[in-house]
Design a protein around this nucleic acid. Sequence first.
DNA 1: GATGAATGAGGTTTCATTCAT
DNA 2: CATGAATGAAACCTCATTCAT
Lengths: 210, 210, 210, 210
Amino acid sequence: MGNENAPLSLREKQRKERLELLLQVAEEVFVEKGYLDTSMDEIAARVGIGTATIYSHFASKEELMVAAILEQNFQKNTQRVVEICSDAEGNATNKLTRIFHFLVSSDFFRRRVEMLYILRGNAEAQRALLARQEKITTSVETFSQTLTALIEQGKATGELQTSTPTSAMVKAFIGLIRTQGITDTLISKYSASNDEILQVYLHGIATHEQ
Amino acid sequence: MGNENAPLSLREKQRKERLELLLQVAEEVFVEKGYLDTSMDEIAARVGIGTATIYSHFASKEELMVAAILEQNFQKNTQRVVEICSDAEGNATNKLTRIFHFLVSSDFFRRRVEMLYILRGNAEAQRALLARQEKITTSVETFSQTLTALIEQGKATGELQTSTPTSAMVKAFIGLIRTQGITDTLISKYSASNDEILQVYLHGIATHEQ
Amino acid sequence: MGNENAPLSLREKQRKERLELLLQVAEEVFVEKGYLDTSMDEIAARVGIGTATIYSHFASKEELMVAAILEQNFQKNTQRVVEICSDAEGNATNKLTRIFHFLVSSDFFRRRVEMLYILRGNAEAQRALLARQEKITTSVETFSQTLTALIEQGKATGELQTSTPTSAMVKAFIGLIRTQGITDTLISKYSASNDEILQVYLHGIATHEQ
Amino acid sequence: MGNENAPLSLREKQRKERLELLLQVAEEVFVEKGYLDTSMDEIAARVGIGTATIYSHFASKEELMVAAILEQNFQKNTQRVVEICSDAEGNATNKLTRIFHFLVSSDFFRRRVEMLYILRGNAEAQRALLARQEKITTSVETFSQTLTALIEQGKATGELQTSTPTSAMVKAFIGLIRTQGITDTLISKYSASNDEILQVYLHGIATHEQ
DNA sequence: GATGAATGAGGTTTCATTCAT
DNA sequence: CATGAATGAAACCTCATTCAT
């Protein structure tokens, strides 16, 4: 009966609810308008709070963005990945396929990469990232370990090659997802679907015995 | 006898040289400081021209960035890709490997993706992109056709699978390169090198007959 | 039997102690950081009370500063000046010297002058000054009368000139102390010590008979 | 025929005139409202220029204040002091009296001291002071040397004591003027005029032979 | 009575863009 | 044509003060 479950006072409850709403709205606006064209005033107005109130939750615009993009979704995404891996049915390839589709559709990585690009070279942003990093360490760890375990299972069952290091397979997998994010005229002309791209990857890590 | 080959007047020659210098410097600064922290004044100062002069070449900051990042290098990069493909020696896999290393090291795609992310959702930027698009159409075409041809050659010689569509192979290849650009704590922990990632891809498109 | 001497309730006692602590801390912070960079939140945090609580004691930041700088020390300083003057030993010159050193070292006038400069022209501050003025009237009176009496004693004993009005001597004396407060590059180059400056003053008010 | 006397282009002339107007207006507003209650917007509005234009002349509000208070008047004041000292008529005491009255009436030291108090402890302000310091070094030197020379002349003619160091006399003189600046209820009750205060000083540095 | 969260109002500063020279 | 100075517009952020609990 830890008191973290103790009933929050009305004030605290309202504050917590507003924080969640703030994060949700912030994410929406950042995604809709991009970092540059999003102003703190607009976020506050949409939430229905004073601009200054945001600063009682987050020290800077950068910190708000990091929180909105990272914290908002990472835990949920990680949880879903774990669920997929825990499924009794399906082999490694099948599970990787499901994870791939889920993560591409969740848009999480697109936002994450966008954030990383935008905040690159911004000293304050680096600090914000660090300040918030620990809050998602658990998710990062779980996410990584889950993927690693999945691939090693695939190797153990002979489904995946053992000649390619697991780390390379994981890294390539994440890269594969990240790449789906942004539209580029250079590649938009290629009609290939996400599925076809995934096939190249799966083929690349699979064993090819007769 | 088109007069586009007529000798340029001194004025015109100087103007053209300055334009090239401007593009070069702009790219440097954008890459060095990022879009946000780059000011038109600084670019002009580094080039040694007046700020207003930039606006006689480009309609906006966005247009300058598009030009600096896209036009500045695309032609050069395309040319090198064509050269590699024209080489008498080496099969498709070997050439893809060389192209991969060249493009990763040239940093072209990192900058391009960064630009796309940053300018996403910015209406003025979209207009700028369109306004400049036609200037690089030739390069885009050449680049695409060269890669497509290379992969189809590989298919013809039996080196690459025919079951995967060429367009998917090309798209995955470009995605592979784009993914190398940005460091992310999520994948930075995986020690896999670029080479190992490339192997996954090459393995994924190769035939696996005994 | 005024009930101002009645035993205070625990509540009232605590409140009074907190007020004293508040004034002390406020003075510290104002002196440490200056008026501009001192925030009510910081003062409250250092005292360990809620920000809003300050406003149950003082109507505004200005009023708090006036109280903290004026009331906090004036009584103590006045008391010490009275003590020095009451000393059986020493003539007027000697006592003025001791008072001078005490007041310079106590830093009271520096803070007072700083406050006056900073709050000058601030209507709210003038109101605060007036609102608090009466609280220190006694000290002001005592301070003034003590100095005046001391100098008139000096005149009576023939130690000080009678040709200079007492009021001028007092005014010059206070000005002398006030002047020691702030460092200015214009006069910092003059190596003269406080003592030497004092000598000019003492020489200026002394009789010079052979 | 240095080209610093070359006719300025119309643009340059206008800019210079506006700068002078800016400094003058800035001084007025700072003196009228105090540092805190003066906003850059108001200064700009009164001058009739855009707020941003101020920043093409001065890097910060602090730098503007330093320039407006220091540079605006120091040279003029110094020049007048030098003129008084160069006067063939009058001995040292007489000249000190005239300098005293001039400087008190010019209000220069009051503003200077106010500035020093306000900017104390403000890091940006210290930088601004340094950045501008060199611009007034000449005036500082001239001012100091002129006063020093005047007093040493007084000593040479036997008018002033030689037992008190010149530096102490100068320092006390400047302190004397600085003290006239701010009204304080503590001393405002003393009816003594500036003149009477000055007498104490002059008496303090004079020789007292029979 | 005490509080901490909320905020309105405003401040300084930046910068892409324009325009008179 | 090239320019540097001017600037409008807006952004982020701060903080004294209030008010519901």
